Computed example of a mutant assay.
Amino acid sequence: MYSNRPRLKIPLETLDIILEFITLTILVVLWCYAIMEYTSMPDIIPTHFNSKGEVDGTGSKGTIWLLMAITTVITIGLHILTKYPHIHNYMVDITEENAAHNYKMSCRLLRFVNLFTLLLMSFIAYSVISSAMGEKAASGNTFMIIMIAFTIVMPIVLIVYVIKNQKAATSKK
């Protein structure tokens, strides 16, 4: 299926470098925050919040490492996936002529998805840690705004990607 696709190394452009840098920085800062706050956290911490932002599930403070591990695996996994654009799914047949453009766009889309997913996971980790430390967790309205924003922003990024690809395809005809 993918064996006939060209395997190209797509050079990073400035936007790609910025996205990668921001993503890495957020991940490192999140880990530093979790490590610094861990010893101060109580033995039981929130593990789930309802739609109002109220704690409705708890667990041992070690569960914060599970959240951090999941966040890290997702972030690194999406980063690694950008290195293999020839295995991504595309709406067009990949040829020698269109491979570079499609690969670049697919990798950039993944970088945006990676950043937005990390931001969401960071918000969740921050909410868990700050709530565990006795600080008021974000209100239900904040949770709802974050979730709505996430469900709006991700499709917008995808739509922009599709439109750019369609424009590129029609301009080459």
Rank of each mutant, 00 (worst) to 15 (best):
S3W: 12
S3Q: 14
S3P: 01
S3D: 15
R5A: 05
R5I: 04
P6I: 00
R7P: 00
L8N: 03
L8R: 06
L8S: 04
L8P: 00
K9S: 09
I10D: 01
P11K: 14
L12R: 12
L12K: 15
L12M: 12
L12A: 11
E13Q: 14
T14M: 09
T14H: 11
T14W: 13
T14Q: 11
L15G: 08
L15C: 07
D16W: 02
D16K: 04
D16L: 03
I18W: 08
I18M: 04
I18F: 09
L19W: 00
L19V: 03
L19D: 01
E20H: 07
F21M: 12
F21Q: 01
I22G: 08
T23C: 07
L24R: 08
L24M: 11
L24A: 14
L24I: 14
T25P: 02
T25N: 08
T25A: 15
I26M: 11
I26W: 01
L27D: 02
V28Q: 05
V28N: 02
V29C: 13
V29E: 10
V29K: 09
V29H: 05
V29Y: 11
V29I: 15
L30N: 13
W31L: 15
W31D: 01
W31F: 15
C32Q: 12
C32N: 11
Y33T: 08
Y33S: 12
Y33M: 15
Y33V: 11
A34W: 01
A34R: 06
M36G: 05
M36Q: 13
E37A: 15
T39H: 14
M41L: 13
M41Q: 07
M41F: 07
P42H: 10
P42I: 01
D43G: 13
D43F: 11
I44K: 15
I44A: 14
I44Y: 13
I45Q: 09
P46V: 00
T47R: 02
H48V: 11
H48E: 10
H48C: 06
F49P: 06
F49T: 05
S51F: 14
G53M: 06
E54K: 09
E54G: 07
V55S: 06
V55M: 06
D56A: 09
D56P: 10
G57A: 12
G57T: 08
G59L: 02
G59Y: 07
G59K: 02
S60K: 14
K61C: 00
K61L: 02
G62E: 09
G62H: 08
T63K: 09
T63R: 05
I64M: 10
I64V: 13
I64A: 06
W65H: 06
L66S: 12
L66W: 11
L67A: 08
L67E: 08
L67D: 05
L67F: 15
M68H: 02
M68P: 02
A69N: 06
A69H: 05
I70T: 11
I70F: 10
T71E: 06
T71C: 11
T71K: 03
T72V: 05
I74S: 05
I74Q: 09
T75V: 08
T75I: 04
T75A: 10
T75F: 02
I76C: 03
G77E: 04
G77K: 02
G77C: 06
L78S: 01
H79Y: 14
H79P: 00
H79E: 10
I80G: 06
